[in-house]
Design a protein around this nucleic acid. Structure first.
Lengths: 197, 197
DNA sequence: AGCATAAATAATAA
DNA sequence: TTATTATTTATGCT
């Protein structure tokens, strides 16, 4: 039951009762409001910035949650980070969470300065978890494919069948791999940018 | 088949042949290189910043692509934006695309200054497309869906339409259910990924 | 208080 | 490019 939504309704005739607990993210056109010593405007500003800074570091909500769980006392789920960023929580909760996030983020940025690797270590995830491939070409398979490609970029049907068999992949998948590989080469073959070696 | 990945491999004993054409985004510790009048370092910097600025504006790759398609001559797909951000393209393409994106992004930021509403109008999408409400399937419906899934986890468009009709759910909702179901299955049955030689 | 998963977004084989 | 998969975010529910 989010009050956020109800407030966007044009019918503002409804009086705000004690039962209605406002959330931080609630849209308001009031000037910076301060309730119970909580500067809502400041929290909104921070939440917005937090997201941008998180994305700048290339971190997911899950990563932040897990890292915080590892370092701080209480546990923080991905949902919790999500809800903070959207401010779909009570001002009290937000107020409590803000300094924790602020401190952690500053530290993360500090490590990032020293290199991506340090950040990942700080975050605690695997150093460079690669995105899983869409289909199951293993790095090993790609290595083999590349070595075949180097020898001959245009294998015959027979050869494709054999390679597919060796790698235990579908023949069609292998055929298409060669197509795409040739395509890539064609796109770039006019320049060898880095002249590596 | 990205060459990017192969370069991250620790096995640097393999000589890089003429067949291996580097792409712009390729990791390098060389100083700013410039080939054929293209400042690669500058492009890398821009691509990185582009993503951050895009996210700061709260825009998706899809939105950028669609907006560009509407304003400029050629069409730009979500994939195209994705590939630019990852620099999984040729230097030539990147060089060509950079000023287009730069100009567009600056304009978008300009409109954003005048208010979120103006940005959305500039982008061309609906003013504030709300996220679809999370649908909850009844246990009965899930049972039926599961039985269909057991028989065939990848139903055709026609079949999806029929299932949706039978269960009286939105077709799109049913389609996504199958996507997510396949995903879940895949995640839970992580059997010997490396078995595939 | 956070899990399970629906929806949205990004990446990529075809 | 397009259609689909892989990944991330958001939320209904208890």
């Amino acid at each position: 039951p989010s009050i956020l939504k109800s407030t966007t309704s044009p019918s503002s005739s409804l009086p705000i009762t004690c039962g209605d607990i406002a959330k931080v993210g609630q849209l308001t056109h009031q000037p910076a409001s301060s309730e119970e010593g909580i500067n809502l405007e400041e929290i909104r500003e921070f939440a917005k910035n937090f997201k941008i800074r998180r994305l700048s570091l290339g971190l997911t909500q899950t990563q932040v949650g897990q890292a915080l769980t590892a370092t701080e006392g209480p546990a923080y789920s991905q949902s919790a980070i999500c809800r903070f960023e959207k401010l779909d929580i009570t001002p009290k909760s937000a107020q409590k969470l803000k300094p924790v996030l602020e401190k952690w983020l500053a530290e993360a940025e500090h490590w990032n300065q020293k290199g991506q690797q340090n950040l990942m270590e700080f975050v605690g995830g695997e150093p460079s978890k690669k995105r899983k491939r869409r289909t199951s070409f293993t790095p090993q398979a790609i290595e083999v494919l590349n070595s075949y490609f180097e020898k001959n970029s245009l294998p015959t049907g027979q050869e494709i069948t054999e390679i597919a068999k060796e790698l235990n992949y579908d023949r069609e998948v292998v055929r298409v791999w060669f197509c795409n590989r040739r395509q890539t080469l064609k796109n770039t073959s006019k320049i060898n940018i880095f002249q590596v070696q």
